[in-house]
């Protein structure tokens, strides 16, 4: 068990370190992540959604569908816990 775990760690870690080499430097304002999609959020969020907080604008509007999924996840977890843990109370029957 431990041997397998260490083997998997070495493989995963090796792959991750291998991948770091060609990553853009940390905090580079011209990296693709900061220059392709996100500038439009920063520039347009206020005008289009009238929300000064860009994170809120993206969370609630541009990617609101993701947020709907997120609430569904919480609902799922809640109902799941009810399903697993709820015991039938005495005298309750139908």
């Amino acid at each position: 068990m431990k041997v397998i775990a260490i083997l998997i760690i070495v493989l995963t870690g090796g792959l991750l370190i291998y991948g770091v080499e060609e990553m853009p430097d940390w905090g580079d304002p011209n990296s693709p992540a900061s220059s392709h999609v996100s500038p439009k959020y920063i520039q347009e969020a206020l005008e289009k959604t009238a929300t000064p907080n860009m994170v809120t604008a993206v969370l609630g509007d541009y990617r609101g569908y993701d947020t709907m999924g997120e609430t569904a996840v919480i609902f799922t977890a809640g109902i799941g816990c009810i399903l697993m843990l709820r015991k039938k109370r005495k005298g309750e029957g139908d």
């Binding site: 569908y65 993701d66 999924g69 997120e70 569904a72 996840v73 799922t76 977890a77 109902i79 799941g80 816990c81 399903l83 697993m84």
Partner: peptide, 22 residues
């Protein structure tokens, strides 16, 4: 959307865990 796949993957997975556990 790649990230949206992850969100729905987790909805499916969580409901699946709960249903399987009983």
């Amino acid at each position: 959307d790649l990230f949206n796949v992850f969100v729905f993957l987790e909805i499916a997975a969580l409901s699946c865990y709960a249903l399987m556990a009983i």
